[in-house]
Nucleic acid binder design. Structure first.
Lengths: 205, 205, 205, 205
DNA sequence: GATGAATGAGTGTTCATTCAT
DNA sequence: CATGAATGAACACTCATTCAT
């Protein structure tokens, strides 16, 4: 029953995958902080306490790391939004849910989102298109919810669904930039912004 | 560089200043499009049809060009906002005016604003602080208007002035990113967003 | 650069140090021949048959290479001189020893000395001061030996120790410039100059 | 008898020549201080309060300025030395005169001499040879005087005329480097060094 | 798995020089 | 006379990437 060196691929893959994970994390962090071109592979290596050349054991290129960071920065977003879209509740509840779902990942994936938002333009053609499609699908879901709310009287009939969508997404994305510096929970931010957007700043009187 | 003594005669100074202006414009454009580190001084020169080395006749360094772009990207913002703050109208009107004033420069100075927003982190210490102070003053004005509206009953009493300010600025700033791609005038955008923010999306019923 | 952690195992460190040594040698040579500003890093690389960029694996900057060359150009000088100062022989013997010790390193370290003598002014503030202190200590030793000789009657009482020191050092240092072109050994030069300086050109009669 | 604008070439040439003179002076100064490659034409212009481009009205190139500085740095040296050689006095008196003549110009032409000594290697082929010939003629004169002194018994018979010449010139040239920092007149330096070299440091006893 | 060594391509910058005015 | 404007060539330096070990 001596524990031998396990040489089957499952066991061997674990540390590899784990280290890879750490590297993507580090990459996301420096990309978010300094931008793709402002960050060097040395910066990433420094954060990990490894040599810069060693990164290339895990990643083909800096660009490939960016691809992975952007992929994770968008992963699940559309799926979650689609799930919200499909559930039977009111437009208001769905919009609140969409906003909350957009803000929540900022807790542990702000770097990924920021990198995606600001650096995706440096992705190679193909993957840039791929993430572009994801963005458009997400926007479409927001628009649909807004339109349904308008149709069923929940929302004002004179809304502009397109502009409203873009404004909401812009507002949500900005949270990624400043929420660290403010002393509020993300939940509170989500509630406050949803209230603002749904009820408006003006008093009802 | 501009080591030359500012020629005494006004006529001779014009071409210098004009060319300089063109260069700042070009710099703003490439900084906005590709980011400070993603843009090379060669890119700027290409846009102007001049040699890269010639840029250094007008600017001491790439960093100095960034400083100038950022300075212009923020120029007048606080002053305008302070003027709005001081005029006697209602909180709602003032907030609308602030939003409109924030959006209007996007017509001809989007590159400057975008560069300021995204690249100011690369400014040298001192000028980074300077523009940082401007940002804070602008935020303070927004907050004050909101607070006043809350006090006099125009705005809901349960607003969070700080979060609302940040959300509004985030929303406005995002306009710089997407307004080009959308087929709407800036005026229309300003109105629509102000309505959204003041009245909310929900119907009054 | 040399960002790498100095490998723990001694064997691995050798090639690095050896290559570094070769590079300092090459730098000393081109600095001596063409001066710091007249020499390009490309010149150094050419001498070594390596690419210019590769130099930066071993040195942080051209300036750092100059620092190392100057450090080695002065290494041991003061120590040797102090040892001579302390030994018990006559002033004449000590002066002869000092002159010989100053000339001997020209055999294999002329480039280092020449670089130190002519290019130290380009060192960054701090290391310029450091080597300046070494120079002054060396001069002080010469002066002391001269003064002692004057006191004990070995040397003429009307010598000017300061000017004599500077003249001697100037004379010795000039050897670095011309000894290559002349067909004499360094030993012979040292003897001849010591004779000249101690006994004078004039015949005793 | 109104003083008209004088347009004949003599009058016009004066200011030109004068300005040229000032420029050579400035060039000599910065070349002496920073070396040919360490000095920029801008440095020269700065010293004169004129624009860098304007230098080219007076000089064809930086190299041409160096040529002129070096020419003046050597001008008269050989002639003076030849005159000394020809006068009828003793070898000792002639050698003293040669040394004095070498040191005297340091009063007002140290920059020219230093530039010649250190930067002549950057002269174009032809003028480098020209000044090389001058150097050799000067050395030959020193050697002749020494040899004559040996022959007629004034100097020790075991002197090495070549090495002695080089040593003396090296010593004299070093004066250009340090005499500024020392609080002695050039005359005193000349006397002291001549004594040292002729009588030696050792006491006669 | 990880790294030391090296490199090609590019970057911002300097600088001597030119030339129309 | 002098200068403002521009430029080509070179320069020190950075950096993503490769590869033998």
């Amino acid at each position: 029953m001596t524990r031998q060196v396990q040489s089957d691929d499952r066991a061997a893959a674990r540390p590899l995958r784990k280290r890879r994970e750490e590297i993507v994390d580090a990459a996301a962090r420096v990309f978010a902080e300094r931008g793709y071109h402002g960050a060097s592979t040395q910066d990433i290596a420094d954060l990990l306490g490894m040599r810069q050349a060693s990164l290339y054991y895990y990643f083909e290129s800096k660009e490939a790391a960016l691809e992975e960071v952007c992929a994770r920065g968008t992963a699940g977003f559309v799926e979650t939004a689609e799930a919200i879209l499909k559930n039977g509740s009111s437009a208001e509840e769905r919009l609140r849910a969409l906003l909350a779902a957009h803000i929540k990942p900022l807790g542990d994936r702000a770097d990924y989102m920021l990198t995606f938002l600001n650096e995706r333009k440096w992705l190679p053609r193909e993957s840039r298109r791929r993430v572009g499609r994801l963005s458009r699908r997400l926007e479409a879901i927001f628009e649909r919810v807004i339109r349904e709310g308008m149709r069923n009287g929940e929302f004002r009939a004179d809304l502009n669904p397109r502009l409203t969508t873009l404004a909401l997404l812009g507002m949500m994305n900005s949270v990624a930039i400043w929420h660290h510096r403010e002393n509020v929970t993300l939940d509170r931010i989500a509630d406050t912004l949803a209230d603002l957007v749904l009820r408006g700043a003006a008093s009802d009187a």
